[in-house]
């Protein structure tokens, strides 16, 4: 019985020591952490990364195929039937509600003119929900901006954009 008792103690001590040896070894290996990139730093993205969309409004023919393909119906498209643009119909609103978007990329494949892609910008932080962090709006005509500008930068976002281009009178839901 004493032999079993001592064997137990020895087993406990020896397995503990082996575990400690392993963590000691790890103490001297290089950590595998990749630190969060500071603003401006490069970071690795997969070539097929599915983050914020990149949208080229000048190509859009307002066919609504992406809106139909979306499982959560988060794409809102509006056009002005009285006007015409180079590509065809005149796009006035292209809005993706990122509170709903699944980032599934089902909107990318059906596009016949290849104007919507999933990009690499992932930083959706903003101080208010309506302040450009959730919805992206695009206005054709006088000016537009790419979704890559949507970030927590105080100059980006919907309201500043509307002010910049004097389009404050347009209200969207």
């Amino acid at each position: 019985m004493l032999a079993g008792y001592l064997k137990n103690i020895w087993h406990g001590v020896s397995t503990t020591a082996k575990g400690m040896k392993l963590t000691w070894r790890h103490f001297f290996t290089k950590p595998t952490t990749i630190q969060y990139p500071d603003p401006g730093e490069e970071t690795y993205f997969s070539p097929y990364e599915r983050s914020l969309h990149e949208f080229e409004p000048e190509k859009c023919i307002v066919c609504f195929l992406c809106a139909k393909a979306c499982p959560v119906d988060c794409i809102r498209i509006e056009d002005d039937p009285t006007k015409k643009s180079k590509a065809g119909k005149f796009l006035t609103v292209y809005e993706i509600d990122y509170a709903k978007c699944l980032f599934c990329s089902l909107c990318v494949d059906p596009c016949p003119v290849d104007c919507i892609h999933m990009g690499t910008q992932h930083d959706l932080a903003a101080f208010q929900r309506d302040d450009g962090g959730v919805k992206i709006d695009f206005m054709n005509g006088e000016g537009y901006w790419r979704t890559a500008e949507t970030s927590a930068h105080p100059e980006s976002g919907l309201k500043p954009h509307l002010e910049r281009h004097g389009l404050n009178k347009e209200e969207d839901e």
Binding site: T23, W24, H26, F27, F28, P31, T32, T33, Q35
Partner: peptide, 10 residues
């Protein structure tokens, strides 16, 4: 810090 280094992180 020590915990981090033992766990392969900073």
């Amino acid at each position: 810090r020590v915990a981090g280094r033992m766990q392969a992180r900073i």
